[in-house]
Simulated scan of single mutants.
Amino acid sequence: MLEKRLETGLIHIYTGDGKGKTTAAIGQGTRTAGGGYKVLMVQFLKGDDTGELYSIDSMPNFTLKRYAELNSFYPFLSEDKKLAVKEKIQHALKDLTEVIENQEYNMIILDEIMAVLYNEIMPIEDVVSLLKKKPDHMEMILTGRNAPEDLVNMADYVTEMKMIKHPYEKGIYARKGIES
């Protein structure tokens, strides 16, 4: 059980085709952890080694767990690998349910949960169920493109990152320390 509780816990969504969804979630998590609260960030379908992983690792009160790490896009996986991903996501769902019920963290970030839904790896009802189990004093942040309307309607904050211009269009790929 937590020693320190948030007064009111709300639901945030960072969505859209623009850059910055995970970065915004980590920023909020950093603020919360810095305030002495416990933060859990669960990343789905991400396998790249990025700079924020090292920052989070060195931060007290901020825990990162990765499920179904990928270095390729889900639709391009073999059927066997897709099945393995689905099993890992089901395991994550079970773990998250326990974490929420045990009230182990003040904030839970579900990074790229929208990609899990978009790729039909998990039904939206499972995410809705998780959000409904959220205690009143727990903050939750969901990230990823294509946020479903049902989740948008449940959220208290919804921010859409919109790409207007991106260096990728000029052939400039992810740079170490900036985009990765």
Rank of each mutant, 00 (worst) to 15 (best):
M114H: 06
I121K: 02
L10C: 01
D57Y: 12
S58R: 15
E87V: 12
L10D: 00
A155N: 10
G51L: 05
T8C: 06
G18T: 12
T15R: 01
S180L: 14
K65M: 06
M122H: 03
L142Y: 01
T30P: 03
T8N: 12
T32V: 13
E87P: 10
T23F: 02
D111W: 05
S72R: 15
A174T: 07
H166I: 10
V85H: 12
G20P: 11
K170N: 04
G27V: 10
T63V: 13
D136F: 13
E179A: 06
I26G: 08
Y14D: 01
G47M: 08
T15E: 03
L117T: 02
D95L: 15
S55E: 05
V152I: 15
T32L: 08
S58K: 15
V152M: 14
A115G: 08
Y173Q: 09
M138F: 14
D49V: 13
P60G: 04
K86T: 09
K38D: 07
K132T: 10
N71H: 14
G20I: 10
P135N: 09
Y173I: 11
L64A: 03
T50I: 15
Y173K: 14
E112I: 04
A33C: 08
F44N: 02
T97G: 09
S129T: 14
T23H: 05
M161S: 06
Y168M: 05
M114K: 01
L93H: 13
A92T: 11
V127L: 00
K165F: 04
H12E: 01
L10T: 08
I11M: 08
H91W: 09
V39Q: 11
Y157A: 01
